[in-house]
Structures are given as structure tokens and as C-alpha cells.
Design a protein around this nucleic acid. Sequence first.
DNA 1: CCAGGACTTTGATCTCGATCAAATTTTTTC
DNA 2: GAAAAAATTTGATCGAGATCAAAGTCCTGG
Lengths: 273, 273
Amino acid sequence: MFSEGLILLRAPLDVSQAEGSHLSGSTLRPEELPEIRHLHLFRDMTQASFEALMASSYAQNFPQGLDIIRQGDPADFLHIVVEGSVELFAQWSGRECTMAVVQPVSTFILAASIRDAPYLMSARTLERTRIILVPAADLRAMFRRDTEFAVSVITELAACYRSVVRSAKSLKLRNSRERVASYLLRQSMLAGGATSYTLPVEKRLIASYLGMTPENLSRTLRMLEADGVKMDGARVIITDREKLTTLAQPDKLIDGPDAIADANGSDLPGASG
Amino acid sequence: MFSEGLILLRAPLDVSQAEGSHLSGSTLRPEELPEIRHLHLFRDMTQASFEALMASSYAQNFPQGLDIIRQGDPADFLHIVVEGSVELFAQWSGRECTMAVVQPVSTFILAASIRDAPYLMSARTLERTRIILVPAADLRAMFRRDTEFAVSVITELAACYRSVVRSAKSLKLRNSRERVASYLLRQSMLAGGATSYTLPVEKRLIASYLGMTPENLSRTLRMLEADGVKMDGARVIITDREKLTTLAQPDKLIDGPDAIADANGSDLPGASG
DNA sequence: CCAGGACTTTGATCTCGATCAAATTTTTTC
DNA sequence: GAAAAAATTTGATCGAGATCAAAGTCCTGG
């Protein structure tokens, strides 16, 4: 269950770990600035503030399967995924579990970088991934100077907090069948209420995120064929939404719609750090 | 397991539910202002801001066992417990679980009141409890005017977020024996590293917080006698700290010291809302 | 296009923790 | 201070989900 052979990386600054022949701690591409600017976190700050923040930031490209953050390390940067995807996971006593998967364009480990505290979660790339690194010190200086940015940070952190609480509620109040069923419905909603869609990440990650083993997820998905879902590989086909809904009992206070709106770019929500 | 006969209370404003012959939506006592002022959240704001916020706030006294917040209701107030204690719990499909117990002096449901969103958790008094209600609208107006307060809110929310993440990590990575053992050690640290201390809340609440049944907690505590803890009612006696530590494998990134410093007044940490 | 590795599925078995039931202790109430 | 209610403990049993093992499938890199 635990991937071994971890390539250790003290801090993202350690450019030697990044890929490519060109030195990868590089400047941002002009086309990615607007995407970042559109994030809730950066949307309301002044243009000057935004530009200042971006000026002190830089991009890095990482190959697949690279550990980019090790839990316990000092949080020196806010991370923004602009390409690829990142798994946030927690480790303890030789065990590990997936806490979230972050997809473009969204930020992660905001909380740690704001508190100038050690990361609580580790992170690894799931594919070739490009990340913007915003120095935590600049971030902290900025929300003291730009009130609208401070408000955005407050709003974002509150949303992240609520997202983890939702996730904790689901873990504590639902059994695994119910968690799977409601996860499938939630993803359907994210896909615009689609009756058929493809799982956004590997099943092993979904299993770990939902607090179960891959074997158990596999069996549960099979069992759910009696309750209105059919799987075809990574494809989900909802054959009887009403039946599935009866089983999952989706709850606004656990499954959204807030949770969906909040989880901007995060498949397994709650990526504040 | 589920307390029935809930007295429903739409909002804390509904004074009719509060106790006492004197109308309980009353002004604050002078002696409680300094205690509130000392909270991290209010420590750094200007005196003027603090006074303005307190001027629009009011106190209410609740009897034991009263539901003061129902999850899903609009979050109109930040709550501050100044006397007694409050259980935060979550409900779904007829089940419920304890998310935190808040004790004086500390705030709860900060996140919900800031987002102007529905409460994700319910709250009930565990004893006779006095609560200060700070209107959420005033709160939101205030951090736009007082930068230091905004910074405090940011810092507080980040701490709350991290606190829930810690709790989620513990739930997902540890089995129940490990959760109990590390809980006991954490409480010992909160008691200044004491070898003997009294559990701060009832065992059924600890059980629910730790994601297990009271029966299982009882049995686990009994089993732990072989691992360096002895129980005498609600009294914990650590007979072999080393042995217990070996079992619990306490981790800075789950059990503190941050987690302890953060959980100011909250026995089962993570009381942002 | 083939080989190797990772992911997924299926089957068999086991175990941790839940559930049910009842006794006992503690706390509250009248 | 006795009766009642709540909390805790203990015992017996059950079952959801984990673990172990192996086969099958998908993906990837040479």
C-alpha cells in the first residue's frame, strides 16, 4: 500500500530535483497569470498587490511521482498547481492516507504558510506538474497591506476549514458504502449532474481518501450495482439516481452545494494545508 | 446513544429559551471583558474596535442540556463561552457524533459566522453555560476596518483548520487503541505533563470524539492497563509513561505541541465552526 | 509491440470494533 | 436521602471492513 523509494526533497527551492534541462525555478508564463488572478484568493486584491506577489513568485516543473513536500518541513511557500495534479497525504507510523488531490488551477497549504508552521501533510505529484511558488513571507506581508486580500484569505481559510469539517463528518457518520455512494453522487454533481462521467483520479486514491482499502472500494462498487450505479473501468454510470440518492442521503452540510463550489479544482476537497 | 426530546431553538436571539427570570439577553459583565480581550482573536485589535464589537454583543445564560445551535441554521453570531461548556456535534441520518467540546474562555463557529453560511455543526450545553454572542455582521465589518483584527482572524482560522486536519489524520491513520493512548498522553500534556489527572469531559463524549463507542472505549482503557495507564473512574494515572508513549507514538504533527497551544479552552480540539 | 510494473478485482479468512443485553456505578432529582 | 435517570462497565455475539493471496487488467517505456 505504501509507495517506497521516496525521493526526498527538503524544500521546493531545491531546484536540483526539478525536471528539465532549463533551470526550472523559472519565471511565470504570461498566460498563467490570468488563471491565477481569477482564483477567489487573488480575485479581489489590487492589481499592484497581485503583480507584486507574482513578481516574487516563481514556477517549477516536477516529473510524475515526485515528493514535493514532506510533512513536518517548514512551510515557506504557498503552492499553486497550474498543470498536472498533486496528492496531499498524511503519514504516521509507517502508514499513509490520501487527504486530497489538487488539480489546476488551485492553491494548497495556505494555512501552513500563513502560520509559518510545519506542513501537516506531504505532497507528491501524480503526473508531470507545474507549480507556482509564492513565498509565505510575501503573502503574510501582503495581507497586512491589502485589506481586500486579507478578506479573501479569511474567506478562503474559512471555506477550507468547512471543507475539512465536512470530510470529517462524512468519515465519522457514514459507513463505507454510504461514503462511496455519496462520493459518486458528488462527483456527478461536479460533472454538471451528469449521468455518466469518468472518475477524476485513480481508485486507490479515492479509496484512501474515503478511509478504506482499494479492495473494499472495489467490492463496494460492485455491490452498488444493486443500488443504481454501474462501473465500467473508471467510468461511472448512474443507472438509477433515485435509488442511489436514497442510499447516499446526500446532505447539503456534508456534500455541498457549498462543498462543491468551495472545492475549486480539488477533486478530493480540503486543500488548505 | 442519541439524546432525544431536543428543545429546538431557531437562533440564540430567541430569548424565551434562555434561563432565569431576568431577561437573559443581557449586557456583558465587566469582569468578563478582560478575559475575552485576552483571547488571541481579540488581543491585537485596537481598544476602540474591541469596545465597538463588545458593545454590539450580548450575553445569554443557558441551562444544561439545551441545544443552542442546530446545524443548517444561518450563522448569525460568533459564540464565546465564558462559563460552563458546550458540545459541538454533527448529525446525519439519525446518527450523531461529537466534534469538539468548548470550554471557557474560547470562541466557536468562527468560520461559519465569517462565511455567512449555515452552521455545519450543532451545539448543546453540557452544563449551565454563559455565552457571549457577537453579531457576525459586525465581525465581518470589523476586520475590514481593523487590520490587526483581520490578521488575528486569519491566524485563528488557520489554526482551527490545522486542528481539524490533525484530528482527521488521527482518525484515519490510527486504530482506536492508538487514538485513546495518544489522547491520554495529550491530556496529560495539557495538564502540564501530569502523571495523574482527571478527564475533562465524560467518557461517552471522548468515545464519540475519538470515533468509537463507549463500550469500546471502556474496554480499550481496561486493556491499556497493560501499557502503562490505570483508570480510577474519571481519574487517569500514568503508571509507565515510556510504555504508553511507545504504544501511542505521539506525533508533533498530530498531537501538538501546536495542537495543544491552539486548543485554547477546547478539550476536544477544533472549535471553529 | 512487447515486457514489466502498477492498478484493480476476486476470493478466503480474520479481526477490530459494533451491537445487543444486562449489571453496576455515578449523578441527578424530588 | 431515597428513587430515578444517566453513565459506565462487562459479557456475548455479530459483522463490516482489513488483510493476505493470487489472478486479471491496464498502462507505460523501451
